[in-house]
Amino acid sequence: MNLVEIAHLTKSYRRGGQVVPVLMDLSLEIPQGDFLGLMGPSGSGKSTLLNLIAGIDKPDSGTLLVGGEDITKLGEADLADWRASNVGFIFQFYNLMPVLSAFENVELPLLLTSLTKRDRRERVETALELVGLADRMEHYPNELSGGQQQRVAIARAFITDPAIIVADEPTGDLDRKSAEEILGLMRRLNSELGKTIVMVTHDPHAVGSAKHVTHLEKGELVRSQT
């Protein structure tokens, strides 16, 4: 079964007076439980595609179904609610709130749910244990290493049990060892928790963790490999 079904997706940007096409009539299917690596040179449109799948950007035309729902039809506020319950984000620079502790950063998406404070606490503790940071809960981002911060971000990404996790260069800012830990965690999310993951990366080592790899060039799919 396909979790994501993309058909005839087009997206362009306006720069100055010029229209720059980024994605051209792109169609793609991502099966449930997949770990897909998106590769391609700069400007190939891989990040744009990831943003569209995550519902933080809107296509010019085409359909984009996630779990059977066409998210291109959703309005601004509905799309925000949809993201809150369906998408987990992992960013290259972690994007943690510097004024919140590790615990509070992971708890953040749960503030948008109806969970009680007690339930939230339980969930956050479990998630931080799973990423190996049970002893760092009260630490602030600036007291954590890059690898640790990214692990907090991963906990934040799966805390709401989303249908899909999107990762944009998750190892781009990390040393080899930390990168390997992060990739290991993502593989576990995929294999043990069955999370569908879409990861944009330049790193040939990182892409080795993916089940499938798709290459983009100038806004078009050039090849897929398993």
Binding site: A54, I56, E76, A77, A80, D81, W82, R83, A84, S85, V87, F89, F91, N95, M97, L108, P109, L112, R156
Partner: peptide, 8 residues
């Protein structure tokens, strides 16, 4: 980031 996480 907050907006991506679903804050309106």
């Amino acid at each position: 980031t907050l907006r991506a996480l679903g804050f309106r």
